[in-house]
């Protein structure tokens, strides 16, 4: 029972897929991780931080 519960819901065990362009050759898994890192970084830069507005209101 526990074994089936703990098995992956989305299996990533199949053959990997790769982004291949000239000498660049990267798995979509790694590419996703790297793009996600850049996205999270940019979002963290632009997303308003809570408390900012409050500060202005209390001023």
């Amino acid at each position: 029972m526990a074994e089936t519960l703990l098995a992956a819901l989305v299996s990533l065990d199949g053959t990997g897929h790769y982004f291949h362009w000239h000498w660049i050759d990267i798995s979509y898994a790694n590419l996703t991780v790297i793009i996600l890192m850049v996205v999270v970084f940019v979002v963290a830069l632009f997303l308003p931080f809570p408390g900012r507005r409050n500060k202005k209101e209390t001023r």
Partner: peptide
Amino acid sequence: SQWGMMNETGSYPGQA
């Protein structure tokens, strides 16, 4: 030659 150092078996992210 396949940039394998950063790859993982299957479709998992590896040592990116």
